[in-house]
Design a protein around this nucleic acid. Structure first.
Lengths: 327, 327
DNA sequence: TTGTACGCGTTATCAG
DNA sequence: CTGATAACGCGTACAA
């Protein structure tokens, strides 16, 4: 900046202003400065800027794992909104561990981020305390709670599962099971599980433990989990899954057994994906746009960062139950 | 740090040392400082540290799109290696546009990153020039070239495609087509295309333009592209694809037409994915671990950053042709 | 092993 | 509209 200032016949401060808030500088001055900057091949130093202003343009985004397509899609939604405003993302994978999440947040704090976008509303007590204390903007995503840290965006996983059970029961199911990954700290899962139990009771069915089947998030694991369960519980007539991967895996196994869908057995799940409308028969799924959740989360975070406190506390983006051939 | 220093009865400089290089500080002093830091709830300021030392712990990673599973997997590989060393990632999506890539790099430069991990070896002239000039560590990934910017890690997409053509020809194909996405700046694609043409000529087949079919990267697009092509060219007896998504799409269409695999027609492609071994019949694919490419790239970057110039120029991670039922 | 002085590249603030 | 001065919080370099 000193060099540019010398070349343009001004001081460094005027250069700073010309570059960050051009309207504060007389047009001829600004033009001279811009020319000088280009001539010298100036690259601004955001690190120094952040230190001087104590305002960073970093946003921390924490997802369970970036390799699951739902999270990479929501990341893409966040990224496209933040990029326009000149924010950069510091991405963390907590691997579904709350302690790891807390560690990540603490370590990212050293970059003095402008805010956080987290997944779910379940966090370690230490993290809740920390985020309460430092009073930085926070958005929680993918699920709704009555008690968000600041604001949250997502849909009611409870209601979605309740509707899904209702749906398969209406379509003739009497013995549904819930096929899901086993991450006890995943509130999307626990809310769905509560809804599953509630809906079953409302139909006079006892939600015994053997109505929940755990599986890793791979097709092979879903296939063998389905195989094992159908062997032990041949009366099963509906499989509800926590992910499209598990739904497709279940479908493969059901097809292999030549069970007739949707009369002998039904399949439906969460997190619709293109594959679900391509497989034969195509699969009934709960859909909610991940890009939209991400984009909305980013906008809500910007509202908190820039807008002050007129921020909305809670945005329900809703969900759709897309009925297809498996029900 | 001043506060900690006061509480521990030392100067800020000693605090700085105690925190960054504990072995330079007498143990009792270090313990006092640590206790004081904990008591005051000290959070280091990496921004100030970066400015003072002009050494950042940011690494810029640029991928075409994070929502494609191959890139999110390689990101995960990069991330797990860099995290151990205390580096953070600034992630950019270039959307397969070289100009966008150049813009991204220029804008990330303001954070004074320690290095770059890029996808492919094809970049805009401006970017090549820039990276040459600033002499920062760079690793190019996913493909090999004789002329890397600094170092590169990946496998020969040319050789892989050549082997794939050889393979289907050996299995009886005479009229192969190449089904791929249409990103002209994607050097993985252009190398595969060159190999496809070369291998065809080596078999006395003219690589006419209608032997290449373009499709978006969705199952639906792959299905309709396959449908269209098979209608116009019913003599087609092998479909080679640039992605598992296209391979699975092609398989669905081939199955729908009740063509017999692998006798009437064959399918094989790049970027093996679990789905390829689950579908019926399962699909022959080229495999190379994306996590491994990412992890290796990260290590090669660290070598440049920390190790000086003993860095390897080129790492060929190789590939496997996994034969399955479609050939 | 610890301390002193200074600089990293910018922006806040107030004066002119 | 522009300038002077003083931070921002830390690390480098050298001295003690």
């Amino acid at each position: 900046m000193e060099d540019i200032a010398r070349l343009a016949g001004v001081t460094a401060m005027t250069v700073s202003r010309a570059l960050r808030s051009p309207q504060q500088v007389a047009e001829p001055t600004r033009a001279r400065i811009e020319a000088a900057a280009k001539e010298l091949g100036y690259t601004p130093n955001s690190v120094a800027g952040t230190l001087a202003s104590s305002k960073s343009r970093f946003v921390v985004v924490i997802v369970p794992t970036i390799t699951a397509s739902i999270y990479s899609e929501s990341y893409a939604g966040i990224s496209s909104v933040l990029q326009e405003k000149g924010y950069e993302i510091l991405l963390g994978n907590n691997g579904y561990s709350l302690e790891h999440e807390e560690d990540l947040v603490r370590s990212f704090l050293s970059y003095r981020p402008a805010g956080f976008i987290l997944t779910g509303y379940t966090h370690s007590p230490g993290l809740r305390q920390l985020l309460q204390k430092i009073s930085l903007p926070v958005v929680e995503t993918y699920n709704l709670t009555d008690d968000p840290l600041r604001v949250s965006v997502g849909y009611s996983n409870f209601r979605a599962m309740y509707e899904l059970v209702e749906h398969v029961m209406r379509r003739g199911a009497r013995n549904p099971v819930f096929l899901a990954t086993d991450y006890p700290t995943n509130d999307r899962h626990t809310d769905r599980k509560r809804a599953f139990d509630t809906a079953l009771r409302d139909h006079g069915i006892e939600p015994t433990p053997d109505r929940v089947v755990f599986s890793d998030l791979t097709y092979a694991a879903a296939i063998s989990a389905t195989d094992r369960h159908l062997r032990e519980h041949p009366e099963t007539d509906a499989i509800l899954t926590g992910s499209y991967v598990l739904a497709v895996g279940a479908l493969f196994e059901v097809n292999r057994r030549k069970l007739r869908l949707p009369n002998e057995i039904r399949i439906a799940g969460f997190d619709d994906h293109e594959l679900c409308s391509i497989v034969e028969p195509n699969i009934t799924m709960i859909y909610s746009s991940r890009r939209h959740i991400g984009g909305t989360a980013a906008r809500m975070l910007l509202d908190q960062i820039e807008g002050g406190d007129k921020a909305v506390r809670r945005v329900d983006v809703g969900f759709e139950l897309i009925q297809r051939a498996t029900t």
